[in-house]
C-alpha cells in the first residue's frame, strides 16, 4: 500500500535535499516541565533551527526510554499533561506555524484508551503529520498504521541494528514520511553510537528505500550530530534536550526563567553544527 499524501514531512525533506543539508529532528515531551514552558519551547523550536519536531505523548511506563526521558515523562504527567492537552498544544502551534512537521511519539496504551479512531481523527485535525508508536510493530499494522495512512498521517517506523535484511522489507512496507534508524541496541539516551557502524547500516537501509533515513538514540552534541548526519537525512536529539530542561529546574522541580531559553540555545548550537 502506498501513501500518496504529500504532506509537510515530504515537503520539508524535499526542501532540505535541495539545500544539501541534514534535518535536525528534536524531541521534547509535551507538558515537560509544565504546559506553559513546554509550549514556549515548542513555539521557539523552528526559529532555533529544528526542522522536524517530535512531540512526546507522556506515558507512565516508557519501556524503551532511558532515565532522562522517563523523568521528562513523569514531570509532564505530574503537571497534569494528558492526550487532550497534547493535541491542543499541536493545534495552537499549527495556527502559528503552517510548515514545520510535527510527529507525535509515544506508546500505544494512551492512544488505545483514548480510542484509536478518535485519536487519529483528532490528531489529523490538530495538524499532526506523523506518528511514531514504539510498541506497535509491523505485525500489528491493522491496529493503527493502516487507519493512520487512510487519513493521510505518516506512520514512521523504527529500524534497529537487529532489523536484519530479511526483516527490513516488513518494516519498510507501510512506513512513510521517513524511517527512524535506532543507532544502538538499547534505550534512549544511552551509550553513544559508533559512527562507522551507523554509516554502514544507513547505507544498507538506503539501498532498500527511497524514504529519508533519520538517525537517533544517543546523539548529544553538535559535532556528534554532524558526524552521524553524514550519509543520513537527519539526526534526532531528545535526551540531551530534556536533560537541559532538568538542569534548569529549581529545587522544587519548577521551571525557572532560563528553562525555555536554555533548551532553545542547545537547539541553536546543534543546528549550527549541522549547517557548518
Amino acid at each position: 500500500m502506498k501513501n500518496n499524501t504529500t504532506n509537510r514531512i515530504d515537503a520539508r525533506f524535499a526542501a532540505l535535499k535541495s539545500q544539501k543539508r541534514a534535518a535536525l529532528v528534536t524531541f521534547i515531551s509535551a507538558g515537560d516541565p509544565d504546559l506553559a514552558t513546554s509550549e514556549k519551547i515548542l513555539h521557539g523550536l523552528p526559529g532555533a533551527g529544528a526542522d522536524v519536531i517530535e512531540l512526546g505523548m507522556p506515558f507512565s511506563d516508557p519501556m524503551a526510554d532511558g532515565p532522562a526521558i522517563q523523568m521528562s515523562s513523569q514531570r509532564a504527567l505530574k503537571g497534569g499533561q494528558n492526550m487532550i492537552k497534547t493535541l491542543e498544544m499541536v493545534r495552537r502551534f499549527r495556527k502559528a506555524d503552517a510548515e514545520t512537521p510535527i510527529v507525535l511519539m509515544g506508546y500505544y496504551n494512551p492512544i488505545y484508551v483514548y480510542g484509536n479512531e478518535r485519536f487519529l481523527d483528532d490528531a489529523k485535525a490538530a495538524g499532526v503529520d506523523g506518528l511514531i508508536v514504539v510498541d506497535v510493530p509491523p505485525e500489528a499494522d491493522e491496529e493503527l498504521c493502516l487507519p493512520a495512512m487512510e487519513r493521510g498521517l505518516n506512520f514512521i517506523r523504527l529500524a534497529t541494528p537487529t532489523t536484519d535484511a530479511k526483516r527490513l522489507p516488513a518494516v519498510l512496507k507501510n512506513t512513510s514520511g521517513f524511517l527512524y534508524y535506532v543507532s544502538i541496541t538499547g534505550i534512549t539516551g544511552a551509550a553513544a553510537p559508533v559512527v562507522n557502524d551507523v554509516h554502514k547500516e544507513v547505507t544498507r537501509i538506503k539501498g532498500q528505500t527511497a524514504l529519508p533515513v533519520v538517525v537517533g538514540f544517543g546523539v548529544r552534541t553538535g559535532p556528534q550530530a554532524k558526524a552521524i548526519a553524514e550519509g543520513a537525512d537527519g539526526v534526532v536529539v531528545g535526551s540531551a534536550l530534556v536533560q537541559t530542561i532538568e538542569k534548569t529546574l529549581d529545587s522544587k522541580g519548577a521551571p525557572t526563567a532560563t528553562t525555555a531559553e536554555a533548551v532553545l540555545d542547545r537547539v541553536k548550537e546543534l543546528s549550527s553544527a549541522l549547517r557548518s
Binding site: M63, A64, V134, D135, P137, A159, T160, T162, T163
Partner: peptide
C-alpha cells in the same frame, strides 16, 4: 495478547 514490543525485540 499479541506482540506489542519495540522493533529491537521483535526479531528475538
Amino acid at each position: 495478547g499479541g506482540r506489542f514490543v519495540a522493533e529491537t525485540l521483535m526479531p528475538l
